[in-house]
């Protein structure tokens, strides 16, 4: 260490510590980060502002009730258009999709988390993730070209044997382009989302909880019921909400399958139905200025609905975060 010695004359030099308390580079960089973050807020605000602003002309010109009218003639004189049929179609397709996708998604997630062999589980989880990214146009094409012709049997059977329940009745004898088919396609689309989120919360269940249940002599299903479900319920709910948000806002797959009629028809296996998003895509290029404004107005309603759904989901997650934080 003798080599470390240094001539003594430098000892007199004072420490070089003066300078600006905050460096310019720091100020600039922090500013960039801050403005990027604020930019995100501004964009969110701008979306709301512009949708409201641009929908005002059509809403003020509308001669019928926007919320209860079913037809869509915004470019007529006087303009008559309403979202009743769109809202019906949107919620109907989303709810049926949820009824199908939630149990299957949870079951598939349970399978991957607790039943499948470890090695296989990772691969299947990856495949599920990839499928979550398959573009919706492909689901639409597949639904239109492959699923629809292969669903005649099921929908016919539903009419024959379950027809006494009004929604399964088919008075037209035509089984294509229906809300039911669109719902099945939507269900398959949101399955990976649903499954991926619930799988994640399942794998977060502390092993100690699960082992405690097993050590009490629980069967595997009892273990899931007493240790896994209570712990992951908020995660499952918020996963379902996020999937619902996706189903409500899905455009292309639905636009390809539905036959776009502006009527409320409870017979879900008959052709018909329309949704907010699909209607925007289908009417976009054939609308005049007032028509575009009317579509923006319907988009605003969709925006508000999905915001509410998403915020509820986030709120459930946030509440859960506090909850688990206090416990660990």
């Amino acid at each position: 260490m003798a080599t470390l010695t240094r001539p003594p004359e430098d000892d007199a030099a004072p420490a070089e510590i003066e300078g600006s308390a905050v460096r310019r580079g720091d100020r600039v960089f922090r500013g960039l980060a801050l403005y990027a973050g604020i930019g995100v807020l501004v964009v969110m605000g701008a979306i709301a502002v512009f949708l409201v602003w641009r929908s005002i002309p059509s809403l003020t010109s509308n001669s019928v009730n926007f919320f209860t009218y079913q037809e869509w003639f915004p470019d007529d004189n006087p303009p008559t258009f309403g979202i009743a049929a769109l809202a019906f179609g949107t919620f109907m397709t989303a709810i049926i999709a949820m009824i199908i996708a939630v149990p299957i998604g949870i079951g598939a997630a349970l399978f991957i988390a607790y039943y499948a062999p470890r090695r296989l589980a990772a691969t299947m989880a990856f495949i599920m993730d990839v499928l979550a990214a398959v573009p919706s146009i492909i689901f639409g094409l597949w639904g239109l070209q492959f699923l629809m012709p292969n669903m005649f049997g099921l929908t016919e059977w539903m009419n024959d044997y379950l027809g006494f329940i009004p929604i399964f009745e088919n008075t037209q004898g035509i089984y294509t382009k229906s809300i039911f088919i669109a719902s099945v396609v939507l269900a398959i689309m949101i399955l990976p989302t649903m499954s991926a989120i619930t799988r994640e919360v399942f794998t977060q269940v502390p092993q100690a909880h699960r082992e405690a249940a097993l050590a009490l002599g629980a069967t595997r299903w009892e273990m899931i019921r007493v240790a896994v479900f209570p712990f992951s319920r908020p995660g499952m709910i918020s996963g379902a909400m996020l999937a619902l948000g996706r189903a409500l806002g899905e455009t292309i797959a639905v636009a390809l399958i539905l036959s776009a009629l502006f009527t409320i028809n409870w017979h879900i296996t008959e052709p018909g139905g329309n949704t907010f998003a699909a209607n925007i895509a289908l009417k976009w290029n054939e609308s005049g200025p007032n028509g575009l404004s009317a579509l923006v107005a319907s988009g605003l309603v969709l925006f508000v609905i999905t915001m509410v759904v998403n915020m509820t989901a986030r709120w459930i997650i946030a509440r859960r975060a506090e909850f688990s934080g206090a416990n660990s």
Partner: peptide, 20 residues
């Protein structure tokens, strides 16, 4: 104080302090 200089003085750059 670092050799008599207050490292918390307002004209001191903390980055320079940490280099020293």
């Amino acid at each position: 104080l670092l050799d008599g200089q207050d490292i918390y003085a307002s004209n001191v750059d903390p980055v320079n302090v940490r280099r020293t």
